[in-house]
Design a protein around this nucleic acid. Structure first.
Lengths: 227, 227
DNA sequence: CCTACCGATCGGTAGG
DNA sequence: CCTACCGATCGGTAGG
């Protein structure tokens, strides 16, 4: 399974030419901003100061660019998850590390993340199934951590599936607003979200042990979700 | 501000013809599935069994359909929020009701929600600014609930902005998977997510008060978010 | 890397 | 509601 360090190019296959990396970079920005169908091959060329037909000296098709972005990103997410939880201990630590890694990916690769989450319908087979299968693996693995935690009595959650969906989607949202020059660093944001994930799955019935002005009011409010 | 019940058509303006409602319905499904730029006017016609030019007897343009969907949906979200928190009491109850309403919207109108969240870049001005302003109002209002709760000592959160982003995005994700014939009803899902929101903002430092096999391990794990 | 160009398809209009 | 059709633009190829 271990393919070793990816020394030649960041994508683990034959090293792409420097110019292809430029093309991917431009496509990444445009697909994220305008969507795949909202971006034309001429737009990508214009971003690089060249004509559209010249792009075909470096790439095979517009669809190929999308497939590479989506498959490589989803593969990286899955590998980063496995690395993150590899030597982790109890469910809380595993969940915290998994969330930290996932949020870090979204702060460091926001364009890729937005594309993966928006352009699934634009991706043709068999790439689409490949991406879906990797996403499913990731979601199931996160759900497994939650299920383990519940079984061990460390987490308290009626619906592990809902919890894993909510946790993963929280992280995805980071790609929408995170800026490297913002108030919080990527590490800080990742740490906060890892905390959010743990809060979400841990015991929710602790208001009695927590000093609130009126425990009765809190208990009443807890019944009030169906007005 | 109260415009009264919307007796004539569900959109609060001049009642759209029955056929225009059909066109909107078809566009809603297609825009949600394939994206705005991935849907052609011919596709919308085909879904209704008619030719593309016939659509223009009912609508003004494809862009008009998108604008109506996005503006009306975002307006409804804002109005539902205001109704939900109108007579609510403490911050926890307000947050719970706000989240419940927001999740209900996403279970009952998943296509609209997906479009609002994916097609902002496809929407032309001035509709785009209108939608953004309504979203901003909603986010600020939810953040205000969290800030109030923190100020009142009922919530414990270093970063109310991150909390409101995470909470809102959690709800949005429901539109991706919810099915009316699934295991959980819309009300049940909304109640669970309202609980997730409250868990996320309440005191996170309660592990010592919770029976875990090893409190030391949990404390160590809590430090472990930056490996 | 370019110009020239391809067939296909786009949103939309004319005129019944 | 239709057919016929518009100019514009699409992704991509030919051939330097």
């Amino acid at each position: 399974m271990d393919r070793g360090p990816l020394l030649e190019g960041e994508h683990g296959r034959r090293p792409p030419s420097a110019r292809l990396l430029d093309v991917r970079e431009a496509a990444l920005t445009l697909f994220a901003e305008r969507g795949y169908h909202g971006t034309t091959v001429r737009d990508i060329g214009a971003a690089l100061g060249i004509r559209a037909p010249s792009l075909y000296n470096h790439m095979r098709s517009k669809q190929d660019l999308l497939r590479e972005i989506m498959v490589e990103t989803t593969t990286a997410v899955w590998e980063e998850f496995q690395t993150a939880v590899a030597r982790a201990g109890d469910p809380e630590q595993r969940l915290r590390r998994a969330m930290h890694a996932y949020v870090m990916r979204h702060t460091t690769h926001p364009r890729e993340a937005l594309i993966v989450n928006r352009e699934l319908s634009s991706l043709e087979e068999p790439g689409r199934s490949e991406v879906l299968e990797l996403r499913r693996k990731h979601e199931r693995a996160v759900r497994g951590i939650i299920t383990d935690g519940v079984a061990a009595g460390r987490f308290d959650l009626d619906t592990p599936a809902l919890g894993s969906f909510a946790i993963l989607e929280m992280a995805v949202s980071v790609a929408r607003w995170f800026r490297p020059d913002g108030a919080l660093s990527a590490e800080e944001v990742a740490a906060h979200y890892a905390d959010f994930a743990v809060r979400l799955v841990r015991d929710g019935n602790h208001s009695a042990a927590h000093p609130v002005p009126s425990a009765a009011a809190a208990a009443e409010a807890a019944q009030d979700s169906s007005p």
